[in-house]
Amino acid sequence: MRAVVTVVGKDKTGIIAKVSAFLADKGVNILDISQTILQDYFAMIMLVDTSGSNDELSVLATECAGMGEKIGMSIHLQHEEIFNAMHRI
């Protein structure tokens, strides 16, 4: 199953390292990454494949949000379909 991970927050060192290590630990494979700094704000969007993970998507989503709190970033993991539905005709 494919999902989109978004990481938004104040820029600092090691965000990508922490997030990708966390995802690897959960068995989530990163397919694509796009990252920019918008007015001092770090914004990263990753397309991931969760089929290698033992956890359900809802569990992964909760864990990602928890991980975000720990490192002071807002992290969402959402089924990719929500973006397809809203932004593609």
């Binding site: 989109v4 978004t6 938004v8 796009s34 920019t36 914004a43 397309l47 990719e80 973006f83 932004h87």
Partner: peptide
């Protein structure tokens, strides 16, 4: 891949 502005908008 998704347009990042679309993703951030959501």
């Amino acid at each position: 891949m998704f347009n990042k502005y679309d993703v951030l908008e959501t």
